Every structure is written in C-alpha cells, then in structure tokens.
Simulated assay, not measured.
Amino acid sequence: MKKTIFLLFAFVIAFSLNSCSSDDDSSSASSGDKIVGTWKFTGEMINGNFEPDITDECDEELLIFSANNTGKIIDKYCDDVDDVYPFTWEKTGDSPFNYVIVDSETGQETPGIIVFSSDFKKFTAYNSEQDMIDEDFGTVYEKQ
C-alpha cells in the first residue's frame, strides 16, 4: 500500500510542477509554484467517486514538494514512528499534467498525471492518462 501511495504521490508531484528558468516572470505563478508546499492525503477517487481516508486521526501521509525539485513523502503513524521517502521531481513534457518522480533511494522513475482543483487547494494524482479519463483510481491530496 505504501509503495502504491508513493507511486501515486510521485505522479502527483511530477504532474503539478513546472521547471522554471531564471528568466521566468516571477509575477506569474506556474503550476510548479502551486505544487510547492505540504500536501496531506485525504482519500481516493475510485470509479469517479471520492472515498475519504478512514485511517486513525493520528495516522497521516504528507507530500512535501520543494522549489528545488526535491521532496519527501512522510507516513506518520500513531506509534510516533515515521517513514520518510525522499524523491526528486521534474516536468517531462509540454503538457502541464505529465511528470516524473525519481525515488532518491532506489532511482526508480515513476511517471504520473496530476489534476488540480480549480482553486489549486487540492489535487488528484493518477498513474496513467486512462485512469485520469476514466477516474478509475487516483489519490487525493489537500494543501496544508
């Protein structure tokens, strides 16, 4: 389950971030700017329906995206032992939805697609374009 969530997180991160060069206009926010920050797992999209996270309140999963294209997934547990998974991310194409997340420990690359809510306070990460179109399965995160 954690690897599945990690892969979905990687997709989300990759999808939402844009690479920025030093000549970018800082007055205009890119999708990369919008992904930077801390995001909390809130549930899953299954067959087009949102299923809220039903784990204990003290258990939570956080995705942290940094502006320098690094990040980490933190799985917090009620027993106070946290699992931390560092990664790097980059945008891989002209589409704002396609990205690659690279597991910093294993080097495994995970492509994915992220779809932001209209207010950019939530996003859903999908493993594939078909999952996004069909809304078969995606993980939902909310900005903290």
Rank of each mutant, 00 (worst) to 15 (best):
K2M: 09
K3L: 03
K3H: 02
F6V: 01
L7A: 11
F9W: 06
A10I: 04
A10H: 03
F11H: 10
F11S: 10
A14D: 02
L17A: 06
L17M: 06
L17V: 14
C20F: 09
D25E: 07
S27E: 09
S28V: 13
A29C: 04
G37T: 07
E44D: 06
M45E: 08
I46P: 00
F50M: 09
F50D: 08
I54F: 13
T55Y: 06
T55D: 13
D56Q: 12
E57W: 12
D59N: 14
D59K: 12
E61P: 00
L63V: 10
L63W: 09
I64F: 03
F65M: 09
F65Q: 08
Y77Q: 12
Y77F: 13
Y77R: 15
D80N: 15
D80P: 00
V81K: 14
P86T: 08
F87Y: 15
T88R: 07
T88G: 01
W89H: 08
W89T: 09
T92G: 02
D94S: 09
S95L: 09
S95E: 08
S95T: 11
S95A: 05
P96R: 14
P96T: 09
F97W: 12
N98Y: 13
D103A: 09
D103K: 05
S104Y: 05
E105R: 08
E105L: 09
T106R: 04
T106D: 01
T106P: 00
G107A: 00
E109S: 05
P111S: 10
P111F: 02
D119R: 08
T124S: 01
N127E: 05
E129W: 11
Q130M: 10
I133Q: 15
D134R: 14
D134T: 14
D136K: 15
F137K: 12
F137I: 07
T139P: 00
T139Q: 07
K143Q: 06
